[in-house]
Design a protein around this nucleic acid. Structure first.
Lengths: 245, 245
DNA sequence: CGGTCCTTTGACACAGGTCAAGTAATGTGG
DNA sequence: CCACATTACTTGACCTGTGTCAAAGGACCG
């Protein structure tokens, strides 16, 4: 982490069509505050803006979960490791996403910035203390958690029952759908992660991801503008392949 | 659903070391009420006990999520289907578990009773209306959702990165761990689900599950008391194989 | 006691993993 | 601005873990 500056607080908002810290300099995609100014000030006293360089792991699985974060800029990945080093990426974070919810006092996963990332950081202790007094805030958290849960269940279907082809197509559609919600170009869609990250997210190997992409390209279902930019040429056909996303 | 009787309400408690409906006749594993008697009465007016026969699907994915449920007896499975019928079981429910949290107004999965099951049913609308007034209740819900989320992430690692052998062993250890938390015998551990259900939970086929079990048996790592009862003979060796559960 | 469902086991096939090599893109220091 | 290293991506050849298909034995039930 390269910079830490005092900032006004995180504003919890509905997932995805998310607002971000009011004063971190990040634009808010939808401003739908759940707490009023007075409470904002109480939160703001303890919040901080944190800048993270690409490749930096700013959360370690198993560490005490001292902070709650809101991504205000950049992209990050969440992952878990097996003892022998196998990795499963459990999610990608974009501006507006949060992390740090945990039922015990430890982080359940590691988090690493993929691009230069700005985070609004807030002590979990304080947040929890405020939950009693700010039911709206808690409802928002509950809503976000429910949303995450639904996404996790979809991912279980993908990992447990879909073929490599179906996984890759589902992934591209997910990315595109997320871009829409964030008000970013959805077709061609930006693919900021490496093939390796995609593989670890989809439960495949780099080689299989790469092969599948070229196969899709050959069949004119997608078009690789460049490495990190994919046009979905035949969305309906792709949706058919994905099997329900 | 074969029976519906007026019951006193669901009591939301910490996941797993869970209490259940106070008056459904189910014993409470830990009585740690989060709401007082007056509020209980308000909840109770709308709650109901529902009995469900084995094999009955009492929640359909995509249906309007009108109720929130608390399992008070029996076992159930949650699953999602792909259009062509492939199935992924996303979780098993035991007494004390809940279901019905959803961020939109639809159920995200189907639920089917595996054994005779009793549920405490509560209208979601009313529950949501009460959240403002009962922050403790909401905190409990948030805690349960966070716990579910952590479990879902573990399951992603299993589905994305573990071998068949590792999956089966992880599953048996999970079952055993859950039994401990519910105060039930954990070794030998009850395995109430069919091989097919296990397969659909682990992202495998019945045949692979069956073969893997006999392989573990041959290697004296487990012992099949009968079809639905497994002794974990060498727990430490099994933990080693599972890779962190 | 015949039917249904669950489980196990065997023989074989194939999707995706592994290993290896080559190419392209990016950065670094001289 | 150019050697050179490094990292990401692609492609090919081959291998293997798990799926598929088939069959048979057992448990349960009306």
């Amino acid at each position: 982490m390269t910079a830490m500056t005092r900032a006004r607080p995180l504003v919890i908002d509905s997932h995805r069509d998310a607002s971000v810290c009011l004063t971190c300099g990040a634009r808010a995609f939808s401003v739908c505050n759940v707490i009023d100014d007075a409470d904002l000030d109480r939160l703001s006293a303890a919040s901080m803006t944190v800048s993270v360089q690409p490749g930096h792991t700013f959360i370690q699985e198993g560490d005490p979960a001292e902070h709650f974060f809101n991504v205000t800029a950049g992209t990050a990945k969440l992952y878990k490791l097996l003892p022998d080093g196998r990795r499963q990426i459990t999610g990608f974070l974009f501006p507006g996403d949060f992390l740090g919810l945990t039922h015990n006092a430890l982080y359940a996963y590691s988090a690493e910035a993929m691009t230069a990332t700005r985070l609004c950081r807030f002590p979990r202790k304080k947040l929890e203390a405020l939950l009693d007094e700010l039911p709206k805030l808690e409802q928002r958290l509950l809503g976000m958690a429910s949303h995450e849960l639904a996404a996790a269940q979809d991912q279980m279907v993908l990992l447990g029952r879909k073929s490599a082809r179906e996984r890759v197509v589902s992934f591209l559609l997910m990315l595109s759908g997320g871009a829409v919600r964030r008000g970013q170009p959805d077709n061609p869609v930006a693919v900021p992660m490496t093939r390796n990250d995609i593989a670890d997210f989809l439960g495949l190997t780099v080689e299989t991801v790469s092969r599948t992409m070229t196969q899709l390209k050959t069949q004119h279902l997608i078009e690789l503008m460049d490495e990190k930019q994919v046009r979905l040429s035949r969305i309906e056909a792709l949706r058919e392949i994905a099997g329900g996303f």
